[in-house]
Nucleic acid binder design. Structure first.
Lengths: 197, 197
DNA sequence: ATGAATTGCCTAGGAGTCCTAGGAAAGATT
DNA sequence: AATCTTTCCTAGGACTCCTAGGCAATTCAT
C-alpha cells in the first residue's frame, strides 16, 4: 500500500489546477482525491472539508494573484502602472479562471483579514491611485469603479457574455485608456442639496 | 393524495423565489420539491432536470429584469436615461440576487437567442447609447465598459467585496456621474501604429 | 535492530443530491 | 360509468460530503 504523499499544500495546489481546468464549482473533494488516485475519505486528514479546501484555495489564489500584480506594478506609476495592472489582472483571470474565481469567494471577514494575498491586493490597488490626484471619498469611489470594471469584464468574459464580433483585447485596451482619462479628470462632486436652502 | 398543482411555470417561479432567499447555487430540485411538499421525483414531470430548471430560471429572470429596465428607461434619454438604467439595474440586483445571478448564467448560444428577455436587455442597452455620440467600434467598447462596471459592482456588492466604510449608494451615484462624463467625452482612438510607417 | 508510536490511507456506512423506471390514484373525457 | 390522461408516488442506482474505526507504512526510542 504505497502512499501518495499528500499534504495540505499539495491538496490545495491540485485543487487550484483542477479549478482552472474544470471550473471552481466542479472542484469536489472526490475529484481532487481521484486526481491523487486516493479515496475521498483520505483527504479529510489534510483538509477539514470542502469549505476549508475552498477557503485555503481562495487565500492561496489571492497570494498568487497579488504576486503577479506586484510584479507588474514594480517601478511603474501613473498611466503605465494602470496599464500594467489591468494587463496583469486580465491575464491572470483568463489563464487561471478557477483561481481567479476563488479570489472572489465570499469569505468570513476574519479569514479575509488573515489572508496576506487579499490584504496585498487591496494595498496594491490603493498604491495604484497614488498616481492620480484624488482625495477621499473620491478615491474610494474611483477604486470601486476600477475594481467593478475589471472584475465585471473578467466575469463577463469568463461567462461568454460578450457576443459582439469586436475583438476583446481591443475593447479592453480602449476601456483602460478611457478609465485613465476619467481618473485624471475625475468630475467634482455636485453641490449637495443640503447646503443650499 | 391531494395534488400540489405543479406546472413548469410555478416550479420556475418557486425556484426564483428560493434563489433570491438562499442563493442561486443552493437551488436544488429537492429543495424546490420540498417547498411544494412533494417528492423530488415529481418535479421531473414538469422540468427535464436541474440544468433545464436553471435555464428556464435564467430566461424568466432576464425577462423580469428587462421589464424593470424598460420601465425605467421609458421617456428618458441621455443622462436621465443612464441614471434610471443604473438605478433599476442595481435595485434589481440587490432585491433579487438569485434572479440577477440567473440572468448571468452561461447558456448555450441558441438558448440565449431564443430568450426574449436576454435579447431585450441587449436592445435596451444599445438604446441607452443613442443619447451619446459614439460610432463603432467605440460604441461597443463603451457598452462593454458600462456593462462591466454595472455587473462588477453588483457582483462585488453581492459577495460583500466592498469593505471600506464609504456609503455604497453614494459611491454608486458618483460612479454613474463619472461614467456619464466619460461617455460624453469618450477619448479618441490613439493613432494606429500600422498607419504610420 | 527491534519494539513502540505516529501518521497515512483504507473500508464501511449514513445522509443528501440528481435522475430513471414503473405503479397507483386523481381528475378529465367519452 | 368506464376509460384515459395526468399527477404524484415508491424504489433504486450513482455520485457527493463527511465520520468512525482499522490496518499498514514510516519514524522514533531504546
Amino acid at each position: 500500500m504505497p502512499r501518495a504523499g499528500l499534504t495540505p499544500e499539495r491538496v490545495v495546489e491540485a485543487a487550484a489546477e483542477l479549478a482552472d481546468e474544470i471550473g471552481l464549482d466542479q472542484v469536489t473533494v472526490s475529484a481532487v482525491a481521484r486526481g491523487f488516485g486516493v479515496k475521498d475519505a483520505s483527504l479529510y486528514a489534510h483538509v477539514r472539508g470542502l469549505s476549508d479546501l475552498r477557503s485555503r484555495l481562495a487565500t492561496a489564489s489571492a497570494a498568487a494573484f497579488a504576486d503577479r500584480i506586484n510584479t507588474a506594478l514594480a517601478g511603474r506609476s501613473g498611466h503605465e502602472a494602470l496599464a500594467a495592472f489591468a494587463q496583469a489582472y486580465r491575464t491572470f483571470a483568463v489563464h487561471h479562471p478557477g483561481r481567479y474565481a476563488a479570489t472572489q469567494l465570499a469569505l468570513p471577514a476574519e479569514t479575509l483579514e488573515a489572508s496576506p494575498g487579499h490584504r496585498r491586493l487591496v494595498e496594491l490597488t490603493y498604491a495604484l491611485f497614488l498616481g492620480y490626484d484624488l482625495a477621499e471619498p473620491d478615491r474610494t469611489d474611483a477604486v470601486r469603479l476600477l475594481r467593478s470594471t475589471l472584475h465585471g469584464f473578467a466575469a463577463l468574459e469568463a461567462a461568454g457574455g460578450f457576443g459582439a464580433p469586436r475583438d476583446l483585447d481591443a475593447s479592453w485596451a480602449r476601456m483602460i485608456e478611457a478609465l485613465h482619462a476619467l481618473l485624471t479628470r475625475w468630475p467634482p462632486a455636485p453641490p449637495s442639496a443640503t447646503l443650499s436652502p
